[in-house]
């Protein structure tokens, strides 16, 4: 009896191990199909062969990254900064700048792989070296500085609170005893947790969920970066940004993995170069003005060459 039962168990263990091994190899093969890069990247393998030649004329940044494409983390559902259009291609203010950075780094705009990230996973993607640069509306904070290296900023931001016009929140005091919607891992969550612990927060993982919750009346207001809220309130009738600048005036910058000094230095030089030709203003005109309209002064949003005035 005993001997047989051991035999059965050995067989079981063997099958378990075999099954897991099979599963591993099977999935490993199929996973190659998963890429979030835009269709234009399909031409890339052909270019990879000609890479040494192409790099001569380009920014010569090929030695700064591991692969033959620069992996840039961007948002996929945060218009007008980073979103997928109807064809599934990445677009927006961040992407406009990121494409130019990729072009200057590797000599070709198509040698970029956009990796779609969530607010809460941006630091993790950098720390585990799954992207080279994060270009996803990344607000510079002291806490994040301990984990990633920020380059020069390209945008200014403060927190805002958007609320229904029928019951507007015009000051933080209006939130007493009410629920405020925030998104996990954002500066809004940190600000209200630290400075207004008496306000009850309703937290969501994803941006789209949070806005939907506001529409469904699951909170009196929603706090996020004011730049995003201006655009959203303009698109959604019946909502107003009652509190437009709260907390510290923060800046938004691309970030690289902690200690990646070469890429950081290159990125800073690049942003200064772009500042000299007023490229961020061009990006504003192309991507943000259509969303904000003329009510907002670009100088309140754009930073050229990393210089905050």
């Amino acid at each position: 009896m005993k001997i047989q039962s051991i035999g059965v168990k050995k067989a079981i263990t063997a099958i378990l191990v075999l099954g897991l091994a099979l599963a591993l190899t099977a999935c490993g093969n199929s996973s190659g199909a998963q890429t979030s890069a835009p269709p234009s990247d399909q031409a890339a393998p052909a270019q990879a062969g000609a890479q040494p030649l192409a790099d001569e004329g380009a920014g010569g940044g090929a030695d700064l990254i591991a692969g033959d494409k620069v992996r840039i983390g961007v948002f996929s559902d945060k218009p007008p900064f980073g979103y997928l259009d109807a064809n599934g291609d990445s677009n927006g203010f961040d992407i406009y700048i990121a494409k130019r950075v990729a072009k200057d780094l590797l000599g070709d705009e198509s040698r970029v792989e956009f990796v779609l990230v969530e607010p809460a996973t941006r630091v993790e993607y950098l720390e585990s070296d799954k992207v080279d640069i994060i270009f996803a509306n990344f607000t510079v904070t002291d806490e994040r500085k301990e984990k990633v290296d920020f380059a020069l900023p390209y945008m200014k931001v403060a927190l805002g609170v958007v609320s229904p016009e029928a019951a507007p929140i015009n000051a933080v005091e209006d939130l007493k005893g009410k629920k405020l919607i925030v998104i996990k891992g954002t500066t809004a969550e940190t600000y209200f947790t630290e400075n207004h612990p008496d306000i009850e927060l309703v937290k969501f993982d994803q941006i789209s969920e949070a806005f939907q919750a506001l529409k469904d009346g699951r909170g009196a207001g929603l706090s996020q970066d004011n730049t995003l809220l201006f655009a959203w309130a303009r698109e959604n009738a019946g909502f107003t940004v009652g509190v437009s600048a709260l907390g510290r005036k923060d800046v938004i910058a691309p970030a690289v993995r902690k200690g990646n000094e070469k890429l950081l230095a290159w990125l800073n030089d690049e942003l200064k170069k772009l500042g000299a030709e007023q490229f961020i203003h061009a990006a504003y005109e192309a991507e943000l003005r259509p969303a904000y309209g003329d009510s907002i002064d670009p100088e309140n949003v754009v930073i050229e060459g990393g210089e905050t005035r």
Binding site: Y83, L84, V115
Partner: peptide, 22 residues
């Protein structure tokens, strides 16, 4: 699985909603 960078059906829907919202 969207949190590990995989775009499945719900995330695709949200991307389309956010783009089409205006």
């Amino acid at each position: 699985v969207v949190f590990v960078g995989v775009t499945e059906v719900v995330k695709t829907g949200q991307q389309i909603i956010e783009f089409s919202n205006s």
